[in-house]
């Protein structure tokens, strides 16, 4: 059932220009970051050759590309996710699922995996660029893999947050802005120089950027994976509850 809902969403996404525009925009931007990364590596080449243990092309080109890709997607995912439930409620197509023998968890998970499927395509297309370097040089493939897993987990968290905000309102735009606000806040949450004393560890823990960076360093740390899993599961659970509450509306 989850697969049926997810596939329908994915198909109808590709029937509209939005999916293609998003793919093109993300690909274009990431390509530009990647291109400047390659340029940077070439510029630094003379200095690197004089170092005893120089950073490789993975450090200088690949990792910054993944880093920027995350920021691009931080802005794109809310736009993709905002319509998941809000649009269905506005068009009243959601009644199709409410009247069918389908549970609220199946609806929420179907919607989530539909979006996740699209985001996996984005991750795959992003991965192609660093991998193309294999034609001319060697890469730290382990580190690239860790980075891609991190990006995937990060996008799952983004997507589930977007899904949750989409259940809160009938207006997709409102859901999108709220999602973007929350994600950006979690991204920059410990940027400020202010020390919040005893609260600081909690604030640091909430930072999506820190957990993502841990993956980019090349380690798949359990605690960081758990953080993303918790965020994703948390928002999915809240989404199911919101869907249930729609029937109780007063």
């Amino acid at each position: 059932m989850i697969g049926i809902i997810a596939m329908r969403d994915l198909r109808s996404l590709f029937a509209q220009p939005l999916a293609w525009v998003v793919l093109a925009v993300v690909q274009g931007l990431v390509a530009w970051f990647f291109f400047s990364g390659v340029g940077r590596f070439e510029r630094l080449q003379p200095q690197l050759s004089r170092m005893s243990d120089p950073p490789g092309i993975t450090d200088i080109t690949v990792i910054p590309t993944l880093d920027s890709a995350a920021i691009v997607l931080l802005m794109i995912v809310p736009i993709l996710a905002m319509r998941l439930i809000a649009e269905e409620r506005r068009a009243e197509t959601i009644r199709l699922m409410y009247s069918a023998p389908v549970s609220m968890s199946e609806i929420a998970l179907g919607k989530f995996f539909g979006l996740a499927g699209f985001l996996l395509i984005v991750v795959a297309l992003t991965a192609v660029m660093p991998l193309s370097l294999l034609l001319g040089t060697s890469l730290d493939l382990g580190r690239l893999a860790a980075g891609l897993i991190g990006l995937t987990l990060l996008l799952a968290a983004f997507g589930s947050a977007g899904l949750f905000f989409s259940t809160l309102t009938r207006s997709p735009i409102v859901a999108g802005v709220a999602t973007f606000g929350l994600l950006l806040f979690l991204w920059v949450i410990n940027f400020g120089g202010v020390d919040l004393g005893p609260l600081q560890p909690a604030i640091d823990y909430l930072s999506m950027l820190d957990h993502y960076n841990a993956f980019l360093e090349g380690t798949i740390g359990t605690e960081h994976a758990i953080y993303f899993a918790l965020v994703t599961l948390g928002f999915l659970t809240l989404s199911v509850q919101r869907l249930d509450a729609h029937r109780l509306q007063t």
């Binding site: 059932m1 198909r11 029937a15 009243e92 197509t93 199709l96 009247s99 069918a100 389908v102």
Partner: peptide, 27 residues
């Protein structure tokens, strides 16, 4: 089977694909 007052149609789908989806949704 329920026909709401506002038709619950996914307007970007073809009739055939839409009915297939509805049938699958209803197991």
């Amino acid at each position: 089977g329920y026909l709401p007052e506002t038709l619950p149609l996914y307007t970007t789908m073809t009739v055939d694909a839409y009915l297939r989806f509805c049938a699958r949704l209803n197991r």
